[in-house]
Simulated scan of single mutants.
Amino acid sequence: MTWHAEPITLTLRRFEDGKSYAARDKFASVATAQLLGGKRAYISGFLADGSRAPISRPDWLDLGQLLRDKYGILKIESERHAVEKSFDTGPAPL
Rank of each mutant, 00 (worst) to 15 (best):
F15L: 06
G72T: 04
S20K: 02
A23G: 09
A48C: 11
L12E: 01
A82N: 09
I43N: 02
K39R: 14
T89S: 02
S56W: 05
L47M: 13
S20G: 08
A23N: 14
S44P: 02
D17K: 09
L35G: 04
A28Y: 03
A5G: 07
G90M: 03
G18C: 06
L12W: 01
R68D: 05
R13M: 10
I55D: 05
L36D: 05
R80A: 08
T11I: 15
F87T: 00
T11G: 04
Y21H: 15
F27D: 13
E79V: 08
D25L: 02
D88L: 13
H81D: 13
P93C: 01
K70V: 11
F46V: 13
L47G: 07
F87A: 03
L63W: 02
D59E: 00
F15A: 05
K70Y: 04
T89W: 01
D69V: 07
Y71M: 05
S78V: 00
K26L: 15
K39N: 14
L12A: 06
Q65Y: 07
P93Q: 06
P54S: 08
A5D: 08
R68G: 04
E6K: 09
I8T: 15
F87R: 03
S86N: 06
T11E: 11
E79W: 00
P58C: 08
A41E: 01
G18Q: 06
G90H: 06
M1E: 07
T9D: 10
K70R: 13
I76E: 00
L35K: 01
G50S: 14
S56T: 13
E77A: 01
A82M: 10
R40C: 07
A22H: 08
K70W: 07
R80E: 06
G38L: 01
D17R: 10
T2N: 12
L94I: 06
A33H: 06
D62L: 15
E84F: 09
L47W: 09
T11L: 15
A5Y: 14
T9F: 13
L36K: 07
I43R: 02
H4F: 11
Q34C: 09
R57I: 15
S29E: 04
T32C: 12
H4S: 09
A53T: 10
A48G: 15
Y42P: 00
L35W: 03
K70H: 01
G37P: 10
G64A: 03
T11H: 11
V30Q: 08
W3K: 05
I8K: 14
K26E: 12
D88K: 05
L47Q: 11
S29H: 04
T2F: 10
R80S: 09
K85D: 04
L35D: 01
A41N: 03
D69H: 06
F15V: 04
Q34E: 12
T89F: 02
L47F: 04
G72N: 02
E6I: 13
W60M: 04
W60S: 06
F87D: 00
T11A: 14
I55W: 06
P58K: 07
A5C: 11
F46G: 12
L74M: 11
S56M: 10
A92P: 14
L47E: 11
E79G: 02
P54G: 05
F46D: 05
L47R: 13
A33K: 04
E16Y: 03
S29R: 07
L47H: 08
P91L: 03
A33M: 06
M1L: 13
A31F: 06
Y42L: 13
P7H: 07
A53C: 08
G18K: 03
